[in-house]
Design a protein around this nucleic acid. Sequence first.
DNA 1: CGCAGCCAACTACAGATGTAGTAATCAAAC
DNA 2: GTTTGATTACTACATCTGTAGTTGGCTGCG
Lengths: 134, 134
Amino acid sequence: MSEPRCPELTPAEFNLMKVLWRLRRATVAETRAALGEKGDELAYTTVMTLLGRLAAKGAVVVDREREPYVYKPAFRRESVLRDRLKGFLADVFDGEASSMVLHLVDSEQLSIEELRAIEKSVVEPEARAKRGKK
Amino acid sequence: MSEPRCPELTPAEFNLMKVLWRLRRATVAETRAALGEKGDELAYTTVMTLLGRLAAKGAVVVDREREPYVYKPAFRRESVLRDRLKGFLADVFDGEASSMVLHLVDSEQLSIEELRAIEKSVVEPEARAKRGKK
DNA sequence: CGCAGCCAACTACAGATGTAGTAATCAAAC
DNA sequence: GTTTGATTACTACATCTGTAGTTGGCTGCG
């Protein structure tokens, strides 16, 4: 029995998840406010609907102890990002990670310096420790 | 007037595009056959519907000179992949390319050796020439 | 010449998605 | 205590997606 995987998320749902990961946990109103700051104005009920769907598919946990309910992510951000990355890589680059990275460099979204820095951070132990935050 | 961008593609549509890029150009039947080899069995009319939608949104060009019609991609594969990558990066990793690559390495989808190889290929001129195929 | 196939156009349709309105409740303000 | 505001539970619904059926033309086979 491997760890339970996060269910598929639609773009709108994923967007909510990003907010929840940032806030750790939040009520509908709080979530809505955070979205608003990003420029995503959604009706209160829309946010509720989305959070409801996320709860239904098990992507968030709802604390119904006391109202207003508090929602929080059921899966670590890191692991969800990883899964998405994996899926994307398989879908678009046939799983060829290096091909993808090459594209990144080619299109100047990643510099050689960054590439070297990554390499270093993977090898060097103390840099390794730092990792994880980002 | 910058270059026209490829319109958004749904997963099913993108899947067809992958086939078309491989075949360069193809009829409905040929496309369908190629999909079949990959294990994607779709009804003839389904393939036609999808190609029709792709044509409608300008992602493929249709040669109606003589039947059966011949469909071919309206955009280079490379550029579409790039766009998708860019969108994904922005959406999932807030545009932080190095963060994404770090994830790749962490989850062992990319080895340090590959990373070094990429670095090299970007720097070295003759390796640079080779690039493009992949 | 009439039928069997191939093909394009049009139609169908269930399920997913994004977005939000309405009803019912409850608690705080007056 | 009645009105008001917050909050949740339903309901709504237009679109988009994936998948495919139906209709009718044209073409070559017998």
